[in-house]
Design a protein around this nucleic acid. Structure first.
Lengths: 117, 117
DNA sequence: ATAATCTACTACCATATGGTTGTGGATAGG
DNA sequence: CCTATCCACAACCATATGGTAGTAGATTAT
């Protein structure tokens, strides 16, 4: 079930329009029409973009009369965060190593004035 | 500079082979050949996948003799984490609301036995 | 020098994606 | 009922991407 949702999730996130949609939806649900206005794109393209978000289960669409209301799924975004954070140890270690190097350089510089002429 | 690196970054992350490469590289640098073996893909495809990671500045390639050594850029992964975490407030609020709903349901259930009979 | 190894470059194919245009269905409002 | 609005569906196009096959360049080993 949780299989390769990461594929469709990251694909959905690779487009700036869709990320902007997420930003918009993070402030509350919106209809397809409501999502069309700010983006200067055709209604068809907006629907297509929404389809990618729905496929990745980032967004849920609900019929309400003649409108389709789009709602953001918080868990989906958290999934991305979880993926990245699983490498937290890696980048923190790297930054620690960088600190060590920087400090060594500072020490070397401090006792190294004569060489720089 | 920081422009739309998110586009290429998320595109790079949308493929399971490339995510596996990142996993591999998070445990240390590797040559193209070293990355080819575990994946049962042609050398050409591996190079192509690496190209996507390089384009997104997730990986850096360095020539060493006849080899190309690939190194992971920790900052790149952190960028993804930062993006997701920028919505942290959103999903935490949502989960809080969910908690409220769940608690209300529990309360309702507790004093509601007669209706279900 | 010759051969084996590591990598890049090119051409080629199928599918996915961003985008347009046209249209039809369903609902809301006059 | 008639019309405007909201949305979906289909056809179509250009480009990007996953993948294969063939080959050539550069470095290492014999």
């Amino acid at each position: 079930m949780v299989v390769d949702r990461l594929d469709t999730t990251f694909t959905a996130l690779s487009d700036p329009t869709r990320r902007a949609m997420i930003e918009r939806l993070s402030r509350g649900p919106a209809s397809v029409h409501g999502l069309t206005e700010p983006f200067a794109l055709s209604q068809q393209m907006i629907s297509k973009h929404i389809a990618y978000l729905v496929r990745a289960r980032i967004v849920i669409k609900t019929k309400r009369g003649r409108e389709s209301v789009c709602t953001l799924r918080p868990e989906a975004i958290k999934t991305v965060s979880d993926w990245a954070i699983s490498y937290r140890r890696f980048w923190e270690e790297s930054f620690d190593k960088l600190d060590v190097v920087v400090n060594q350089m500072k020490k070397a510089e401090a006792g190294d004035d004569k060489k720089h002429g």
